[in-house]
Nucleic acid binder design. Structure first.
Lengths: 132, 132
DNA sequence: TTAATTGATTGCAATATGCAAGTGAATTAC
DNA sequence: GTAATTCACTTGCATATTGCAATCAATTAA
């Protein structure tokens, strides 16, 4: 997506302003998923060609990094870069919005509470868990 | 957009997961814009049919409300609902992301500082300004 | 009464999406 | 060692969405 303006909101949308990209980042942060097939099994059921193109774009944009799995060379291991990790606060605010306005949202209440009242520590905990 | 899952992030994307919807909400919050022609003049230059369809969808989804302008009956006046106002924290986090990773972002430094250190008051100030 | 403005809609080409099927390399099962 | 399976894509094709220019009706201004 070409840069449309210097607006900081428009700029983020140039990176992840579609229905799928943030779900991949979500899977990386919240569900410890790291591979193509894991992303594919997420409940939103994205098509294989879309997943493929989004992984490629996220990598090109520097939000994720790709390495061949040392234990199974058919597999790629995807990880978040700093740019990708820094999308986490945006995702937390989305969770708070849904917990307020969507009665069917399935976010754990405890997580929402921490997102509201203990953000910095929650972010450190979530990102710290990724390192290991 | 039909609901794809009960994930709170997916849910927000079902509402504003495209390149344009959040820019309309941005114009309403940050630039006090209220009409079709004002949105159209934003620097991202969205097409008239896209703007039209997004305004319709945002209204149907309950994020904005539309009224005929009492002073000029050709015009509509668009305002944020509570659902729309509650998207503001998401936009603030996007601004913070861009201020960190995009050297060309044009958000005022003072605004970013307040978004980081004085969020609640900033939100109240921005939304309070809308009422008047 | 004519001209300009506003908020759209329409037609059409280009792009993106969704789905099913297929591919080749790596791994596992026999 | 061969066959079957897994994995990460890729392709083909129908449908949907987008981008762009032109047009429209209603309202307002001159």
């Amino acid at each position: 997506m070409p840069r449309r303006s210097d607006c900081p909101i428009s700029n983020v949308l140039d990176f992840v302003g579609d229905k799928w990209s943030l779900l991949i980042l979500r899977d990386l942060v919240f569900f410890n998923k790291h591979s193509y097939s894991e992303f594919l099994n997420s409940p939103e059921k994205m098509a294989t060609n879309i997943l493929s193109s989004r992984l490629e774009r996220l990598e090109n944009d520097g939000l994720i990094a790709k390495k061949v799995d040392v234990e199974d060379k058919r597999k790629n291991v995807y990880t978040l870069t700093q740019l990708g990790r820094d999308m986490l606060p945006i995702m937390l605010e989305m969770m708070i919005w849904s917990s307020k306005h969507d009665p069917n949202t399935n976010a754990p209440e405890q997580l929402i509470k921490r997102a509201k009242n203990d953000r910095e520590n929650l972010i450190n905990d979530l990102l710290g868990r990724i390192e290991s």
